[in-house]
Amino acid sequence: MQLMVEARNLRKTYKRPDGSSIEAVKGVDLEIRQGEIFSLLGPNGAGKTTTISMISGLVEPTEGDASIGGYSITKEPMAAKRLMGFVPQEIALYPELSARQNLAFFGRMYGLGGKELGRRVDELLEFVDLSDRQNDRIDTFSGGMKRRINLAAGLLNNPPLVYMDEPTVGIDPQNRRRVLDTVKLLRDEHNMTVLYTTHLMEEAQELSDRVGIIDHGEIIAMGTQDELVQQVGEEDRLEITIGAQEIAESHLERMQQETAGVTRILCNPPEQVSDDSSESMPAKLTVFAKRGRTALPQILQDLDSAGVEIQSVAVREPDLEAVFLALTGRALRD
């Protein structure tokens, strides 16, 4: 399949006010195929927005380059930008103007005019289901409605490639569902390629044909969801909350060796809520096992015999959260 986006060794270093520097993106390589939804999944601060900003020409890479439809974003930015639509994380609209005025302005910037512009604006207002509010100022819209117009503004030029940077941040479940359905529609009915960034594993799982997992400015894994799960082994994950207790390292090692199917046990110790508080967050055990449900009784028995109070147990099928956890030792939401 033809490549729509190809990024090679993208790096971005920022200077801090004290003169030191911080490398936000450390040599990212990406290939996104035409007609697929590619999600860049990672926690906040992982480098998703910086990466997408470099690929879309908003930020100049310190090193490396990206091409869109064969055009280099650093050397042929005009040609590259004509092929893309951009939906930023922020509501990048003029709050003083109406929805229609905003769309008409950005449409004119793509060279649309006259009846063609009017038709395209009408189509998009219809597409995001806001035709009835087209003449209202953006600052009178709810968060979800603003997000939908923000999305429409990124589609004015009917681009073969759309960047969406966390487009569901801060909106209610109903509007979120609308946005996710719209993204799938763009691929399925308009054959658009979508580069979608998110820190929500559920969104990446629902939408993506392929996923790149990014952490600390590096892509640590990339592939379809099945491929990623296979990379870390198709293991179930048992999440056991055990109250404000600590378990000896030796006990965990013995439990791992003696329980069939268990490959690894991670323990997050209890955490004090605040410095002047005696309350603690409960400790959590994460047990990786080939057949989680089979191993569970044995594990619970071991913990009980060690005098550990068990507060809750959950069995998770292999998913992207497990992949991230396996690769980084941290949960996505940490």
Binding site: S53, L58, F86, P88, F106, M109, A153
Partner: peptide, 14 residues
């Protein structure tokens, strides 16, 4: 801060 400048940057404009 409202990102309209960045949106302009993403358009085919120098």
């Amino acid at each position: 801060s409202q990102w309209t400048l960045q949106r302009l940057m993403a358009l085919p404009l120098s």
